[in-house]
Design a protein around this nucleic acid. Structure first.
Length: 647
RNA sequence: GCCGGUGUAGCUCAGGUGGUUAGAGCGACGGUCUCAUAAUCCGUAGGUCGUAGGUUCGACUCCUACCGCCGGCACCA
């Protein structure tokens, strides 16, 4: 039985961080879980290298796109190696085999009549690789806020519009195709609104995969990147994938474009797509500009990679956004891993050593029956939850078992039994120790996919001979632990962590790691200090060009929210004309209307009027912003006269 | 604005088809055992179950409106 799971190929615009780790680690845990059910699992990922952005970033560092990408691709692979993630194939989009697959897929679509040529003039965001509909020259990209650039191209189009009904049928007939359900609904309603044909080539780049035969056009990044899922296993009869694991930001590409491409080429569709949420840092979005990005390896160095794996799978309900914080991480570690699992292993093995010479006794009576029943129940609960991607619930069920055993041990009080010489007490002591050890064994197997390193240690301490990885979870049952087995002297698997020491250490190592990655990317020190999402400078203009822009000092007379819009404010502004100007400004998320009244602002006074939500905006208000940040209105420290022109 | 989700103890969350004193884990506090990693175990902590109405013999659980938060779409020229 095969199981093919993918995580995205990661874009080489950034070095790996905890978000990349999250997706990949979940895939790794699933892989281990499936392997322990007898599946041959293949996990693939790679690097997404073909884009103008990469070309530009490489050029800025005086490198070729290939060399630049290679450095980052290696950095990703190194991270997966260091953190023990079982990635089977790492595919670079620059790989010639991949080029062949993309071209092959294109030709199949073409043969089936789903490709046509057309021309396009519009605004394009090079940062996001996204065409922006209805935008004008220089308008900001709706996703990243950087200015869009005008492009006119003759391109190949994919007839996406022809797949609307088929896609809707897919979502309805195969509810598991897109999960969680929330995401499926979003995708469905998006498709229902209507699909436009998709331009799948570009003619303005050189770094990428050329269209077959003619060779002038380069494939659009998503026609390229998604196809690595095919390329990675092309000769292995593994397609279709059993699971695409993705982050919620790339749902549209996976749940709409990708199945449409495959349908057009007459290929089987992936069985399921699961989109997880984002990891926030203490409830804030992680971003370069906030400087709150966390990496996996510094955490690994201080408390081990298993602690991070456990935290992410236990603390965050899979699918929803989750919050990472060092406090919560250490809290989980101490409460669940050190005090819970680690301590149970420790006390169990220690008693077996002191009371029974380090050999697991056999169960003599039914003193442990309730624990056994609970364990059987947890075996079922755990696997069902894990299959359903409810990792948090799965882990919770194991800990509920650990809690039962801890209570059981106290109730039986082996330390009292050992002092009694009667047969019954000795039998109960044996049974108690066996019961505890059997729970440790079962829990260790169940937890192996989540805590691979630690489980292996516990397994060894228990004296188990068979390799843990080869144990079949679906064949686990109570009572399989062999009596007489020799255990090792326990050593703490999860030593308690002092948050006061560990957290500063992690933070310190984090900054070391960041510096190392920055150096790797050839970032200069000065550049590093500036927020890296500052919009790139526009091309040089002449003084005459600037002279065309008529900026005026104005005073806000009235301000109110525009009905039906989250972002628009309806302002009237006095710029010393007979009539005040009506201006619609997209600042409602950052400014309340009332406090604006009376405020002096800067207006672009000669902008072509435009209707917004039924109101004609006669100009534009000047504000500063970072791509994902709030707007700041321009103003004056002195009392600038209304109507004065800015030059 | 439209669509969807959500709002339960300090924190993270459970609470099919309405019905005795609303639950768990963590944290906090008190106590205990001593096998154990100052761990375990026991007990306590008493939260208007977002707000206001409504249906009902009875609602956290159903309905309506409103508020807050999250997401998608629209939109941010």
């Amino acid at each position: 039985m095969k199981y093919y799971v993918t995580v995205p190929i990661y874009y080489v615009n950034a070095a790996p961080h905890i978000g990349h780790f999250y997706t990949t680690m979940v895939a790794d845990a699933l892989k281990r879980f499936k392997t322990m059910h007898g599946y041959d699992v293949v996990l693939t990922t790679g690097s997404d290298e073909n884009s103008v952005n990469v070309e530009r970033a490489a050029a800025a560092r005086g490198m070729s796109p290939g060399d630049y990408s290679a450095i980052i691709a290696e950095e990703f692979q190194r991270t997966w190696r260091d953190t023990g993630l079982g990635v089977d194939r790492f595919f670079r989009t620059s790989d010639p085999r991949h080029h062949a697959t993309v071209q092959w897929l294109f030709q199949r679509c073409q043969e089936n009549g789903h490709i046509h040529k057309g021309s396009y003039t519009g605004q394009y965001c090079f940062s996001c690789n996204l065409y922006v509909n209805d935008a004008k020259a220089g308008d900001p990209c709706p996703d990243c806020g950087r200015p869009t650039e005008t492009v006119t191209e003759e391109n190949y189009f994919f007839k996406l519009s022809a797949f609307q009904d088929k896609l809707l049928a897919l979502y309805d007939e195969q509810p598991d195709f897109m999960q969680p359900e929330i995401r499926r609904n979003e995708v469905r309603s998006f498709v229902k609104e209507g699909l436009k044909d998709l331009s799948i080539t570009r003619s303005n780049l050189t770094w990428g995969i050329p269209v077959p035969v003619e060779g002038k056009h380069i494939f659009y990044v998503w026609f390229d990147a998604l196809v690595t899922y095919l390329t990675a296993v092309r000769d292995e009869n593994l397609w279709p994938a059993d699971l695409h694991l993705i982050g919620k930001e790339i749902i549209r590409f996976h749940a709409i474009y990708w199945p449409a491409f495959l349908m057009a080429a007459g290929l089987p569709l992936p069985k399921r797509i699961f989109a997880h949420g984002w990891l926030l840092f203490e409830n804030d979005k992680m971003s370069k500009s906030r400087g709150n990005i966390v990496r996996a390896t510094p955490i690994q160095q201080v408390i081990g990679i298993d602690a991070l794996r456990y935290f992410l799978l236990r603390e965050v309900p899979f699918g929803a956004d989750g919050s990472f914080s060092y406090d919560a991480l250490v809290g989980r570690y101490n409460a669940d891993l050190a005090n819970g699992l680690g301590n149970l292993v420790s006390r169990t093995l220690s008693m077996i050593h002191q009371y029974r010479g380090g050999a697991v006794p056999s169960s003599q009576n039914d003193a442990g029956a309730e624990v056994a029943a609970k364990a059987q129940e947890v075996l079922a609960t755990f696997s069902a939850a894990f299959e359903a991607f409810e990792f948090s619930r799965a882990l919770e069920s194991v800990w509920s078992l650990l809690g039962v055993v801890d209570k059981f041990i106290v109730k039986q009080a082996p330390w009292t039994l050992v002092k009694k010489t009667d047969e019954a007490s000795q039998q109960t002591l044996d049974t108690t120790l066996y019961t505890a050890a059997e729970v440790v064994r079962l829990a260790t197997v169940l937890l192996a996919p989540v805590l691979p390193e630690s489980a292996r240690k516990i397994w060894a301490q228990l004296g188990m001979n068979a390799p843990l990885e080869s144990v079949r979870i679906d064949q686990l049952a109570w009572g399989q632990l062999a009596a007489g087995q020799k255990t090792l002297t326990p050593e703490p698997v999860f030593p308690r962590i002092d948050a006061k020491i560990a957290i500063p250490k992690m933070i310190e190592l984090e900054s070391v790691e960041k510096a190392r990655q920055d150096a790797l990317l050839g970032k200069a020190k000065k550049e590093e200090e500036a927020p890296s999402n500052i919009a790139p400078l526009e091309p040089v203009i002449t003084i005459d060009d600037f002279g065309k822009v008529d900026l005026r000092v104005g005073r806000v007379l009235t301000a109110e929210k525009v009905k039906g819009s989250d972002k628009l404010l309806h302002l009237t502004v006095d710029i010393a004309e007979p009539q005040p100007r009506t201006i619609v400004a997209g600042i409602a998320e950052d400014y309340q209307p009332e406090p604006l009244i009376g405020r002096k602002v800067v207006i672009v006074a000669n902008l072509q009027p435009r209707k917004l939500r039924g109101i004609t905006s006669q100009g534009m208000i000047v504000a500063a912003s970072l791509p994902d940040g709030p707007a700041f209105l321009a103003g004056f420290l002195e009392d600038a006269p209304i109507g004065a022109r800015l030059k």
